[in-house]
């Protein structure tokens, strides 16, 4: 008697959500996949076809694969740096009992209120010729000049500054979930700082590290405004290239193929890292 209404209720609850996911997520992806197999035509914009040529064009051309590699290494590097800088901050915040803790958390969240474009413009003011750093260098030793804008360094710095809050917040919530007494237990059992971190904190924080890393990796792979503004015209990453194909060249099929290549690369790496983490620390 109770089984049917319950099944019905579950169906009613899951139904709209499923429809929403199908409509908002799956359908556009299918459309995108279909578009990527069409042929571009200068006057007709897009001609219905079933051709792999857009993928082939990307994959055989070292110019395009080079952009993919650049994107990959920038994303991996910024993810690693996010972890390196984010973990200590997150740990301090999570373990803080001070009344300044909420102020600290706010400080981390605050940059998220500002769009990435605006923050990139800010960095331009700091890194560019005549910017903050350049002026400081010129003041310290006349005649010298520091031009960091339009370098990979500027892009890494920009992405790092945008992604760091996501990493810190993810790690903070995970570290807060680790009983501080567990660390004290390790401490009382003779584990010094590094070994406590290695044997206790790290394995317990690993799911959070994986989540945070995947999050910032995906964000970095898809970064648009930062590489465009801080990398300049000579520094190419996937998202700006994709946008240019779509918007400036009106080449939707090729743009769709680039989008899929970017997505598949990101998903593959994400899935591989998750599988690695799960196998390595099955218990945690």
């Amino acid at each position: 008697m109770s089984a049917r209404p319950r099944g019905l209720t579950a169906g009613l609850l899951v139904g709209p959500a499923t429809l929403l996911v199908m409509g908002a997520l799956v359908a556009p992806l299918l459309l995108l996949a279909r578009t990527s197999l069409n042929r571009y035509d200068r006057t007709q914009f897009m001609v219905e076809a079933l051709t792999p040529e857009n993928y082939a064009r990307f994959l055989v051309d070292p110019f395009y694969t080079g952009v993919l590699w650049t994107t990959l290494w920038i994303a991996l590097l910024t993810t690693a740096l996010c972890l390196l800088f984010g973990f200590p901050i997150a740990y301090r915040l999570a373990r803080s009992q001070s009344r300044w803790k909420s102020a600290g958390v706010l400080l981390v969240i605050l940059p998220l209120f500002i769009g990435s474009t605006v923050r990139a413009l800010g960095w331009m003011g700091v890194l560019g010729r005549g910017g903050l750093l350049d002026s400081a260098a010129a003041a310290l030793s006349p005649g010298s000049s520091v031009a960091l804008l339009y370098t990979p360094f500027a892009v890494v710095l920009g992405i790092l500054s945008i992604n760091l809050p996501y990493m810190v917040l993810t790690l903070q919530s995970v570290i807060e979930g680790i009983d501080a007494r567990v660390e004290e237990a390790a401490d009382s059992l003779g584990a010094d700082g590094p070994r406590r971190f290695l044997h206790v904190v790290l394995p317990l924080a690993l799911p959070g590290i994986a989540t945070g890393a995947v999050l910032v990796f995906i964000l970095a792979m898809n970064a648009y405004a930062t590489p465009l503004l801080l990398g300049g015209a000579r520094f190419q990453m996937m998202a700006p290239m994709l946008f240019r194909e779509y918007a400036v060249n009106n080449n939707w099929p090729f743009a769709a193929a680039i989008a899929f290549i970017l997505m598949i690369t990101t998903l593959t790496l994400t899935a591989a890292s998750s599988a690695f983490v799960q196998r390595r620390y099955k218990a945690a």
């Binding site: 007494r181 567990v182 004290e184 237990a185 401490d187 009382s188 584990a191 394995p203 218990a283």
Partner: peptide
Amino acid sequence: LPPHRREMGMVFQSYALFPHMT
């Protein structure tokens, strides 16, 4: 003297067992 060099065995109220270890 830091705790890890005090040779004191502690039993915590919450037990504080390492959840990822047997």
